[in-house]
């Protein structure tokens, strides 16, 4: 059970949050210009990394804000949290 440091509320139990999958997948601005394959890439394809992964989390039973989390999936350590729209911390690239 993680402890997640919500950028708006501080450290809270994982049960207050819901996970929203991979971060930094931007919805295409002009979906109609895309081929089926390109659209499918956006729609279905997600990484599943053993190691450092960038994820979206929602403080659903708290401030309801979405934010980003850097997590090492091999040991579940959360290395960093940052707000939506902020650039991912460079040292984990």
């Amino acid at each position: 059970m993680f402890l997640i440091n919500c950028p708006f509320c501080g450290e809270r139990d994982q049960s207050e949050f819901s996970s929203g999958g991979e971060a930094h997948i931007v919805r295409p601005k002009q979906p109609t210009e895309l081929s089926d394959d390109e659209w499918a890439e956006y729609l279905f394809m997600r990484k599943n990394i053993k190691g450092i992964q960038f994820e979206r989390w929602n403080h659903v039973h708290g401030c309801r804000k979405w934010f980003n989390v850097v997590r090492d999936t091999s040991n579940d350590k959360i290395l960093s949290v940052y707000k939506m729209g902020e650039k991912p911390p460079v040292n984990y690239k």
């Binding site: 929203g20 979206r56 659903v60 979405w66 939506m84 729209g85």
Partner: peptide, 13 residues
């Protein structure tokens, strides 16, 4: 509500 919030906060801020 949660889905709409998601779009508002992350895709269309």
């Amino acid at each position: 509500l949660s889905k709409l919030e998601d779009y508002l906060q992350t895709e269309w801020p």
